[in-house]
Structure formats: structure tokens, C-alpha cells
Amino acid sequence: MVALPGLFGAKEKVWIPKGRPSPFHDGPTNDQLLSMVMALTVEVSVLRERLDTHERVSETKGGFGAADVEAYNADNDANAARSSLRSRIMHKVFRILRQETARLENEDQDYDKIMKEFDDV
């Protein structure tokens, strides 16, 4: 079995460079977010490349190749299943934006009052 990057059990250690931290933004949140997006971008690239390898290896072994994938026509069932997959991804990725507006809709509680309530107890 081929070891996957990052999966090395007990040896795992977070290596950080010795040097001043990089205060590029007013707060660290944007830096952290951007760093996560970059890491995700690389992960997606790795996944995409793995798919490409699958097509190429399959073709050299007499199986299907990229052209077969291109020629594939999804039927109605497949299209419906894919549509729900896509919706699920949109929901996951943009959840945070919808949470912001959902709160505006439901904002009828006086939280300061609630805090006091518990404080009093």
C-alpha cells in the first residue's frame, strides 16, 4: 500500500519556521482563510490529477480513457443524482454566508437580557 502524504502516525509533527510571524492583515482571520483556500486549491489539483491518472492508466490497460469519459451521456437518474450532489456542495461551501442572513431573519431574542437572566441565577 502506498503511504499517503501527511499520514505518518506517530512521527507527525507540525514544523514551523523560526522567524518573525507575518502580520500581513489587520487580523489573522483573513490570512488563515486565504491559507486554507490555497491548501484546498492544491488538494483539488491533486484530486484532479489523480482522476487524470485513472483515465490514462485505464486506457493503457485496455479499459476506458478520457475520450470515453467525454463521450459519456448521463441519463435522467444520473443527472438528478448529480444535481443533488452539486446542491450539497453549494450548501456546504456557502453555508457561512447563508448563516449570516438566516440570523437576521430570526433575530428576535434579546441576548443581553438572557445573559442577565442567567447571571441573576
Binding site: A3, P5, G6, L7, F8, K11, K13, W15, I16, P17, S22, F24, H25, N30, D31, L34, S35, M38, A39, V42
Partner: peptide
């Protein structure tokens, strides 16, 4: 700001990618 974050982060990602590859072997 985004540019600075990205160049330093890509550098750290590079050493992390290579470091984890080395550490497993």
C-alpha cells in the same frame, strides 16, 4: 496583503509538502 500572505503561505506549504514526504520515509 493577500499577495504577501500567499507568497509566504506557498513557501510554508512547499516545505510542509516536502517535509511530510521525507518524514514518512
Amino acid at each position: 496583503q493577500a499577495y504577501l500572505t500567499m507568497i509566504s503561505t506557498s513557501q510554508d506549504m512547499m516545505w510542509d509538502a516536502v517535509g511530510t514526504c521525507v518524514d514518512r520515509q
